[in-house]
Amino acid sequence: MAGPDFETQIKQLQATMHTIEQVLDLDAMKREIAELGEQVAAPDLWDDQANAQRVTGRLSTLQGELERFTSLQGRLDDVGVLVELAREEGDADSLAEAEAELGRLHKSVEQMEVRTLLSGEFDAREALVTIRSGAGGVDAADFAEMLMRMYTRWAERHKYGVEVFDTSYAEEAGIKSATFAVHAPYAYGTLSVEAGTHRLVRISPFDNQGRRQTSFAAVEVVPVLEQTDEIDVPDEEIRVDVYRSGGPGGQSVNTTDSAVRLTHIPTGTVVSCQNEKSQLQNKASAMVVLKAKLLALKKAEERAQLDEIRGDVKGEWGDQMRSYVLNPYQMVKDLRTEQESGNPQAVLDGEIDDFLEAGIRWRRGADKAEQN
């Protein structure tokens, strides 16, 4: 690396960090942390468990954001000092170390910059993801299960919690549908760019003639509600059906009518949960999912933009947003952002951060273009 490149790169990173600092509003963040800290210290905090969870969760999120920014700023300052000392002493090894650290810093700063783009009304929320098999028969059901594994692997890589609410297994292989929550700050804002139709092209393992098959799966992402969200669902608007769970599970899962399906009669929205052992637990979990989907519908209707939240996904030709091609060549390509990878297996193993970041930047650009 030529000498002047160090200064140029450091200045560019410093400029980006300054922009991030302005967007985050660190002074306001520190004031809120102090206020929340006082609330956490109150002896009666846990008298209201819902509020206590909200306060402690918000405090943890803000502290994490501040620590992340401060750490990056410290590393950037340190690399500047390292370059200066290495130049004075003619230390080639230290310059090589600085070059490597600058590469790591570029990636970390880009990731934090993307986080500042998540400023939508619900972007900071946790996410509820629903995957449904589309056109393509058994291959589509298998693909839907591959996508579920992809997202859970991504969550595991980031140490995010995943809670599966419902899985409907297909007869031969794969799943008809699945709904699960990703418990992490900004999970909705991050994963919402995944909403849409995903397309798989491969030699079908279910075709005894070894023919190439195209199949589709639809992904829907909605935000998890908080206690303060006003979604009132009268009992008379809900039809409750109970049934015996299917698929793999423990003894009590498959031998009792513990699974619950809720239908919101006015909108026709249907959700189900079968992963808990008791009917009451499954009904409570299903209500969480139902209310989240009703909130998404409510907000979409207010803006007359249902596609923006639910994606208007059909899981068929003509509306795909990403292709996963395993044959005749190896390629994953996002048709909106042009982001691509020549390693589909890594992507399906959860390495989707580059696609998520590209999607968030693309959405921000689309929003700005719409406003102008």
Rank of each mutant, 00 (worst) to 15 (best):
N275Y: 02
N275C: 07
N275R: 07
N275W: 04
N275G: 02
N275P: 04
E276L: 12
E276V: 08
K277Q: 11
K277H: 09
K277L: 11
K277T: 09
K277M: 08
K277D: 05
K277W: 07
K277N: 09
S278M: 11
S278V: 10
Q279A: 00
Q279I: 00
Q279D: 02
Q279E: 02
Q279V: 00
Q279M: 06
L280Q: 14
L280N: 13
L280Y: 15
L280E: 14
L280A: 15
L280D: 12
Q281S: 13
Q281C: 10
Q281V: 09
Q281I: 07
Q281M: 12
Q281N: 10
N282S: 04
N282L: 01
N282P: 01
N282H: 02
N282F: 00
K283G: 00
K283A: 02
K283E: 07
K283P: 03
K283S: 02
K283W: 01
A284N: 11
A284Q: 10
A284C: 08
A284M: 08
A284V: 13
A284Y: 06
A284I: 11
A284P: 07
S285T: 12
S285D: 10
S285A: 14
A286Q: 06
A286T: 08
A286C: 09
A286P: 06
M287K: 01
M287I: 03
M287R: 03
M287V: 03
M287F: 05
V288C: 08
V288E: 11
V288Y: 05
V289T: 15
V289S: 13
V289E: 10
V289H: 12
V289R: 09
L290E: 09
L290D: 11
L290I: 13
K291P: 04
K291E: 05
K291Q: 07
K291R: 14
K291C: 06
K291T: 04
K291M: 06
A292R: 06
A292K: 07
A292C: 12
A292L: 13
A292E: 11
K293W: 05
K293R: 15
K293S: 03
K293T: 05
L294S: 05
L294Q: 03
L294E: 03
L295C: 10
L295T: 08
L295F: 11
L295H: 12
A296M: 03
A296H: 00
A296F: 00
L297V: 03
L297A: 01
L297E: 00
L297R: 01
L297H: 00
L297Y: 01
L297W: 00
L297K: 00
K298F: 02
K298N: 04
K298Q: 06
K298P: 00
K298L: 01
K298H: 04
K298C: 01
K299N: 09
K299V: 13
K299H: 14
K299C: 13
K299E: 14
A300Q: 14
A300D: 09
A300C: 14
E301L: 07
E301S: 13
E301T: 07
E302Y: 01
E302L: 12
E302D: 10
E302M: 05
E302H: 04
E302C: 08
E302S: 06
R303D: 14
R303Q: 15
R303P: 12
R303C: 14
A304F: 03
A304T: 04
Q305W: 12
Q305T: 15
Q305V: 09
Q305F: 09
Q305M: 15
L306I: 03
L306E: 01
L306M: 05
L306Y: 00
L306C: 01
D307V: 06
D307Q: 08
D307F: 05
D307P: 08
D307I: 02
D307E: 14
D307Y: 04
